[in-house]
Write a protein that binds this DNA or RNA. Sequence first.
DNA 1: ATGACTGCCTCTGGCAGA
Length: 257
Amino acid sequence: MKIASFNINGVKARLPRLLEWLEERRPNVACLQEIKSIDENFPAGEFEKIGYKPIWHGQKSFNGVAILSDGVEPEEAQRGLPGDPDDEQARYLEADIGGYRVCNLYLPNGNPQPGPKFDYKLAWMKRLRERLTELREKEIPAVVLGDFNVIPEDKDTWSVKAMQDDALMQPESRDAYFRLLHDGWTDAIDTLNPRGGVWTFWDYQAGAWQKDHGFRIDHILLSPQCADRLVSAGVDKEYRGREKASDHAPVWVELRD
DNA sequence: ATGACTGCCTCTGGCAGA
């Protein structure tokens, strides 16, 4: 079972690149973030044409998440992150697929910090922990993946100095991430690349891609019930270098059946 | 260096992203 995550930065602008990646790499499940589309405009038919069954949670202009499943209908389990009825941002979608609970998230960026956006990020992470604790207590084999907007450790960025004031690597953001790991979730990419130096994002600006100035913010967490099924995990880095690329590269995990 | 690039909706410039 191969489960992937891709912050595509606009489903409309990225559609040819996205279809190309799906056909070339053929993940069983693909979680998308930043579809930047209202529900009515989501191009479901384009995915169905190549064999993927989609569910999606859209929003005008920003955010938006979707789950695509190869040949199998995803059984939606949760739309939107619980815990705040006033939060209308489309950043969370859960589905049952092939015996796994797949939790797709687009965690708030939090810049500028300090400020209300950073407060929203930290509150969102607290709610996420509560949701994931529920799943853990039910002992569901779960994969939680997406754009976490957290640089977990210094080894996960090309430059600590360049990023030191960024919301992505503030101690509060990191603490909230490590609370999840201490709860029993396994960071699949970090487990297989303990020395770091693996990037999933390169800024469009200042020639960041050409200079390999990236960082790791797209993560895949495994619940205790499926951590021992981990076979491999990685980043489809080459897709960041293609024409009209997203600023993120896809990440993926392969789990033993 | 208040920089850079890209997508969105469209008040085609301002906002958001990271």
